[in-house]
């Protein structure tokens, strides 16, 4: 760090400000007593109180949490096993498996949204909780696999070797060695998947039905129908909740592994 040019440090600070100032403004405005505009008219909790009494928002919150829990849970059940299965493949195969696996994470979400919508409508599947959960699993599952694999790669094979030498079956190794060692990564993946599902707008927008409105869909329709201070309060809550989950998840993943951005793109 000693020779890092000052211009780099200054730019970095400005970029960090650029990343965080909008969020700070948003949270600040949610406590503003003014009903119109951004001029500061005093501190208030009233927008949060209004939110707590809004039946539609409470329903959307329940929907969002149920969908996030189910899609993350199913993604974990399938994803952890898949990650373990994939880790034993040949190296040359792996780079292509990697590319295929991250495809659902890198294609623009709108493609996933319209493609799923067409499949569901052409197969006459009723749009609702089921279709939203499937939509969220399409990105949650690869996300889980990528995160768990990153951790698997860092595990010392000696643990499993030792267990085998002592007569453990493959089932014993899995339940007593591999899974416990993977625990931080599994928690990290669960938290991140839960947040991504909770926050997803585009895919949900295309595959949700009338009864399965989630919080982001609710926020979107509130923005479209007119700016009210309640949106600021709701947005502030959503930002803070996802920041806490993501921060914790990222920390869990990074603490025990080498610093690398691999998990986000490889």
């Amino acid at each position: 760090m000693k020779r890092t040019p000052t211009t780099f440090i200054v730019t970095s600070l400005l970029v960090m400000l650029f990343l965080y100032l909008p969020i700070v403004f948003l949270i600040g405005l949610s406590f503003n007593a003014s009903t119109m505009g951004v001029a500061w008219k005093g501190f208030t909790f009233q927008w949060y109180e209004k939110l707590a009494m809004d039946q539609a928002i409470l329903e959307a919150t329940v929907n969002s949490v149920v969908i996030a829990l189910v899609s993350t849970g199913l993604a974990l059940i399938l994803g952890v096993g898949t990650a373990i299965a994939l880790e034993t493949r040949q190296k040359t195969q792996q780079s292509w498996v990697n590319l295929i696996l991250v495809l659902p994470l890198v294609i623009p979400e709108i493609l996933l949204g319209v493609a799923l919508l067409m499949v569901f409508v052409l197969c006459q599947v009723h749009l609702g909780f089921g279709t939203v959960i499937i939509g969220h699993m399409v990105f949650n599952l690869p996300l889980t696999i990528v995160i768990v694999r990153a951790r698997l790669r860092k595990l010392d094979p000696a643990w499993a070797d030792a267990a085998c030498d002592l007569g453990a079956t493959s089932w014993d190794v899995l339940t007593h060695i591999t899974l416990p060692l993977l625990r931080p990564a599994i928690w990290g993946a669960a938290l991140l998947g839960f947040t991504v599902s909770l926050d997803d707008f585009v895919v949900t927008f295309f595959v949700a039905g009338p009864g399965s409105t989630t919080l982001p869909l609710k926020v979107f329709s509130m923005i479209k129908t007119g700016m009210t201070p309640e949106i600021n309060a709701l947005s502030a809550i959503m930002v803070v909740v996802s920041m806490l989950c993501v921060g914790l998840s990222w920390f869990l993943q990074q603490r025990s592994t080498q610093v690398s951005a691999e998990s986000s793109y490889q």
Partner: peptide, 15 residues
């Protein structure tokens, strides 16, 4: 910020 709700962060720029 990257994993934080994209819709809400974009809405902040509207404000």
């Amino acid at each position: 910020p990257f994993w934080t709700n994209f819709l809400v962060r974009t809405y902040a720029w509207v404000l």
